[in-house]
Nucleic acid binder design. Structure first.
Lengths: 168, 168
DNA sequence: CTTGACTCTGCCGTCGGCGTGAAGGTCTAG
DNA sequence: CTAGACCTTCACGCCGACGGCAGAGTCAAG
């Protein structure tokens, strides 16, 4: 498929897809005309890329680890082996830390909101969001809400999640 | 206290604290010499600010919601009321979404790492990090690992966590 | 008084993942 | 053949939370 279709099927913009190629994340073939030609596996690859980007990994790191995707079982002790594995573990730890920070921030927001909650809450999109009881923590909150009514130019931005706080 | 002490006690740099003031997040008093003078509550405030910043809220939003901190009970239906509450709910939803994305990314990393795990894993800092069993998901993972051996200039960076992916 | 640590106000630099044209080829339905 | 949709390669712009530096003033101790 060509770049437009891949874009439609992944939610990325053509510009983003070219950027991914420039960063070595994708290596589509070329038609004699210069047009990029993508294959089916690229759809999954782009989804993976976007997931990792959204988690704050930069393109360089992703470029190193992406080759371990196409089949579920990678190529033995090949590219996924040396200190690269250490980098992976570090990224994993970073993600976990970030999740903790997010949880803390959400709890803080809940504490601030907790006071009152007029009917206007329903204007905030869908999903109740606020803490139902006004005392202890509500452990549920299913997450993954609806598209969250954003009216920005194109609703497909990403924007990484960097976080190296020490906060002792 | 002066800016240096507040910096030491919060992990922020003096530069960051001035920036927070510039953004209206802090309003320290001034000595006749021009030196900023902070109070004890500012310590908690800075921690809150950093928590929210690390969660991806921008300074403008934080400036609106921070006045609801000093006492646990805010000032009734005062500033924490109108469509501001809607904004809060939106931010809350964003955070929850982001947590989902992080979980997805971590699962992806686990899938990539899952193949083999030589002894070199211990080089990645501490915390096993990798999935112990090679099949189903490991629901535990306590998070909040050690300081995560980073040797950067000053180990106190933040860096927000933006994420507006649609990813249908 | 002097020294050294601390603080002040500008102001420019940075970094990553794209957005957004501009100027020009390619493809395909009618 | 032609229009219009799609594609190509530059190349600059942006944004937010600071980092870092310069030049100058302040403060406490010896």
């Amino acid at each position: 498929m060509r770049i437009g279709e891949l874009a439609r099927r992944t939610g990325a913009t053509p510009r983003a897809l070219r950027y991914y190629e420039e960063q070595g994340l994708l290596t589509p073939e070329r038609r004699p005309s210069g047009y990029r030609e993508y294959g089916e596996p690229d759809v999954a690859a782009v989804h993976g890329i976007r997931t990792l980007l959204a988690a704050g990994l930069n393109s360089a790191v992703i470029a190193e680890i992406l080759p371990g995707l196409p089949p579920p079982g990678s190529r033995g002790p090949g590219p996924t082996c040396p200190e690269l594995l250490a980098g992976l573990a570090a990224e994993r730890a970073r993600i976990t830390r970030q999740m903790d920070e997010l949880a803390a921030a959400r709890a803080l927001l809940d504490a601030i909101m907790g006071a009152e909650a007029p009917s206007s809450v329903i204007l905030a999109g869908r999903e109740p969001a606020g803490p139902s009881a006004r005392s202890s923590a509500g452990p549920s909150a299913r997450s993954s809400a609806g598209p969250a009514v954003r009216a920005e130019p194109a609703g497909r931005k990403l924007g990484g999640a960097r976080s190296r706080a020490v906060l002792e």
